Amino acid sequence: MAVEGGATLSDLYNRSRRLLLKTRDDLEKLERLFAAVDSPELSVSVRRDISQIQTLCSEMDGLWRSVASKPQRDLWKRKVEQVAEEADSLRVSLDRYMQRQQKRLQEAQERADLLGRTNGESSHILRIFDEEAQAMESARNSSRMLEEATATGTAILAKYSEQRERLKGAQRKALDVLNTLGLSNSVLRIIERRNRVDQWIKYAGMILTLIVVVVFLRWVR
């Protein structure tokens, strides 16, 4: 079973596993850099990879349902669910990181404001943190757009999967109707043949009765 472009269920699964490993490594890198420097580009990249994993899960969800063998279908269902759960866990971890980073920036801003009230040399510090805050805001906006795009893609894939199931159901009903019509035609032909035989039996009985009556009348005379 393959999707458009020739990717099979195994291909999509292997791609999602590689993305999970890469995303997990990038998250660990973000945590290591947390206390030293912010990396909005890396956080956006992590968010983008998580969104891609979720898209792959949506594609795989439409494919494992079409696997003919029930044991294989159940196995693929567990695999896809596991990938989806890991992606959700990574997304939660990234959200927590972003919240801590935002809190750190707010605390730094408050310290800079306090320094500004005690001396007039805080303008440079404020400018640095303003730039960092703007970078964080840009990262959040990019993450939000990625999530919206992923949600839209997931909804489209789910709609396609639903339409495919409806088409399969309609096909099965059409086959049932055709089979029923075929059976009905056979029954009608049998009934027609039986009617013709009954008519021949009736005519033969009438002729036989007439012959018997004629013979009897002649014998009586």
Rank of each mutant, 00 (worst) to 15 (best):
S123V: 14
S123G: 13
S123L: 15
H124A: 11
I125S: 07
I125K: 06
L126S: 13
L126P: 08
L126V: 14
L126W: 11
R127Q: 14
R127G: 07
R127F: 10
R127K: 14
I128N: 00
F129I: 09
F129K: 05
D130W: 15
D130G: 15
D130M: 14
E131N: 15
E131Y: 14
A133W: 13
A133V: 15
A133K: 15
A133I: 15
Q134S: 15
Q134E: 15
A135Q: 15
A135R: 15
M136S: 12
M136N: 12
E137W: 10
E137L: 10
S138A: 06
S138Y: 02
A139H: 00
A139G: 00
A139W: 01
S142A: 07
S142H: 08
S143Y: 00
R144Q: 04
R144W: 06
M145S: 06
L146R: 03
L146F: 03
L146T: 00
E147D: 07
E147G: 05
E147C: 03
E147V: 04
E147K: 08
A149R: 09
T150H: 07
T150C: 11
A151K: 08
T152N: 03
T152A: 05
T152P: 00
T152M: 03
T152R: 04
G153N: 08
G153R: 08
G153I: 02
T154S: 10
T154G: 09
A155C: 06
A155L: 08
I156H: 01
I156A: 02
I156D: 01
A158C: 00
A158F: 01
Y160M: 07
S161R: 07
S161V: 01
Q163H: 05
Q163W: 04
Q163S: 02
Q163C: 01
Q163N: 05
R164K: 03
E165D: 15
E165P: 11
R166C: 00
L167V: 06
L167T: 06
K168D: 13
G169Q: 07
K173L: 06
A174P: 08
A174N: 13
D176L: 05
D176F: 05
V177W: 07
V177K: 06
L178K: 13
L178F: 14
L178G: 11
L178A: 14
N179C: 05
T180K: 10
G182K: 14
L183W: 02
L183Q: 06
L183Y: 03
L183I: 03
L183E: 04
S184G: 09
S184Q: 14
S184E: 11
S184H: 12
S184R: 12
N185G: 11
N185A: 14
S186Q: 14
V187D: 10
L188Y: 09
L188D: 09
L188G: 07
R189W: 05
R189Y: 04
R189K: 07
I190M: 12
I190D: 11
I191S: 13
E192D: 13
E192M: 10
R193N: 05
R193V: 03
R193F: 04
R194H: 03
R194D: 04
R194N: 02
N195Y: 13
